[in-house]
Amino acid sequence: MRQLYEFLEQDNRSAGFARVAISTLAVLLVWQLVSMLVTNRLLLVPPAEVAAALVKEVESGAMWTNAVATVTAVVTSFIVSVAIGVAVGLALASSRVLSLTGGPVLSALNSVPIIALAPLFIAWLGLGFASKFVLVIMVAVFPVVVTTEAGLRATDKQLVEAARSFNATPLQIFSTVTFPYALPFIVSGIRVAWARALVGIVVAEFFGSFAGFGFAILSASQTFDTARVLGYVIMLGAMGLIGSVLFATLERRLAPWRQE
């Protein structure tokens, strides 16, 4: 028991996998127990039934269709959000005037629940890719803008001075000091953006689309197919988890000195 405990505390890959496995098992166990108490199958179904529903979706080909629709839409809009977010953050960090005038607008937009505008976007842009694209960008871009600007501004003055002492040009100062220093900040913004992008895509698909995980969840719940609803929610959860682990790892890789 003691050995297991020490193993789980380690900071390596196999211990990490073991931790994820244990917490997944724990969730499944609790879920199983609760579903034995709550016997109304409209409200909750046990894990095994959800797994069976997922298998059925895969066999019918519906899983593949929905996955392609959701993943292509969310990945393209996410990549575009990151590109726009970094570009806007760069502009804000390089111009004081721009930051002072644009900053309040941005933080206002950032605190408005833009997701609530989903019905409007769909009315403007119609059902399909365009409305998903715009809605995801609108929710995912802000964390990247904010962390990019903050990261670029946080730069270590002493490192800039050392670079200047070696006769670095402004461009060299940017590429060898300011930007590498900001990179871990930017990646943490990207991690938040990915989580928001997933929320954005599901909501967009609820309101207007003919394929995708959000569409599938909505149509399953209209036929009271709780197993199928939970199955697709698990798919979304897995996408969120993968992104979060990936970006957290990247953040650590880029800034190993922050661990100490």
Partner: peptide
């Protein structure tokens, strides 16, 4: 009147690039 390759400085504070 500006930094040049004829002079090099070792600073009081830590100024190595951590990455």
């Amino acid at each position: 009147d500006k930094p040049g390759p004829d002079r090099a400085m070792v600073f009081q504070q830590d100024s190595l690039l951590p990455w």
